[in-house]
Design a binder for these strands. Structure first.
Lengths: 204, 204
DNA sequence: TGTCGTTCTTATCCTAAGTCAATGGATTAA
DNA sequence: TTAATCCATTGACTTAGGATAAGAACGACA
């Protein structure tokens, strides 16, 4: 099998993507780019693997390169899905180096998944050496915050059927990548209800 | 009336609070503190005033000193409340200097309210001169993002009655400061339903 | 004091979603 | 190939919440 060389090539592709991304926000020498990129790791996970469990002290932030990660809470023994992270989306560590709070949720791979990983310590190191990257990070945090505000607002202002139609419109690929009962939970209804909603829409 | 001197005193108090806050994250000279604080304005609004309307290009971030701000969307002529900002909470501008998107929501004063205000340009100026403050900002953005993730997760995993009980537990003061029909909308139900929920809980 | 507007509550009826149980299809494992 | 498992669908029944309309409580204010 050409497995290890395949992996090698893929990782090199990702690293050069990262270099390109950093080059866009500031002018760095090749050595500096090396240093920055070397603070970031790349990890592969298999379908079903858990990145994080309730109670863990999350000290890493991730970004999805390929694949799909599901965030869920365990409430009365039931999995309540609250988000799906796909290509290009970031998962920020829920705590900082100063305050370490155990996670209340799980992160599980819906598919085989490749992620970039950066530890909290490396993150600080990176900002110390390359302040431009802290600006970049602040900006993407502000955007991400804005996204979440919109998602919350959207959730409050719509009913399950509207939410399903929204999903169909804005993230249609999810419907094929994710089992329906997980989608249902994400939309805030039971699997049975989602089935009925789909039927209702189909008839219309 | 001692109105203008009252106001003066209040503003001085707020400014000294800000100096204290900045001093905690880095060592600044008095002149530097002056410079930083002078980039931030203080504004008073009356109950009912609108800070922001749908379609506006928000170029300011706020923090509530005293009072209460309601965020709401107008959907089919109906106000859908999506958040209440009270003392100590920040309202981040939904867009950056680069991308200017018109706001989709309104910000309205539930009570007479005093806010600190910083424009996007002053924000950049501040980070340029005092990089420590950019770290501070990044950290609070990360915390705020985490808050929103939890709020969304909480909204997805609970029903209206549970959400009301949560509010009772975590922000009880809101129940007295905000009219019930606005709370209802925030909880994702009609005013009539919230009335029934309250009755149900009271009987138990 | 009485009137008006706003907010909250109550009643009725209807619909959407939850619950429980059963079925059938699809995929995987033996 | 046959079980076994997982998942989506359907049906019957219950319940919470939406829509509408009407009345009660409250406060502002002339």
């Amino acid at each position: 099998m050409a497995d290890s060389s395949d992996k090698k090539i893929a990782i090199d592709t990702i690293k050069s993507e990262m270099r390109k991304c950093f080059s866009e926000v500031g002018s760095f020498s090749d050595l500096e780019l090396d240093a920055a990129v070397n603070l970031i790791g790349i990890k592969k996970f298999q379908k079903g693997e858990l990145l994080l469990s309730e109670g863990d002290n999350a000290a890493q932030s991730y970004a999805v390169v390929t694949g799909c990660i599901r965030q869920y809470y365990l409430v009365d023994g039931e999995e309540k899905t609250t988000f799906f992270y796909t290509e290009g989306q970031s998962i920020f560590a829920p705590n900082s180096t100063s305050n370490r709070i155990p996670a209340k949720y799980y992160l599980s791979c819906v598919e085989d998944t490749t992620l970039t990983v950066i530890t909290l310590t490396n993150q600080l190191e990176m900002y110390r050496r390359f302040p431009m990257l802290e600006s970049l990070s602040r900006n993407s945090l502000q955007e991400e915050l804005h996204n979440y505000q919109e998602m919350l607002a959207n959730y409050i202002t719509t009913n399950p059927e509207e939410r399903y139609l929204n999903l169909l419109k804005h993230r249609p690929e999810l419907l094929h990548r994710v089992p329906q009962y997980q989608l249902a939970s994400y939309l805030g209804v039971t699997a049975e209800s989602l089935s009925r909603i789909r039927k209702r829409i189909f008839i219309k």
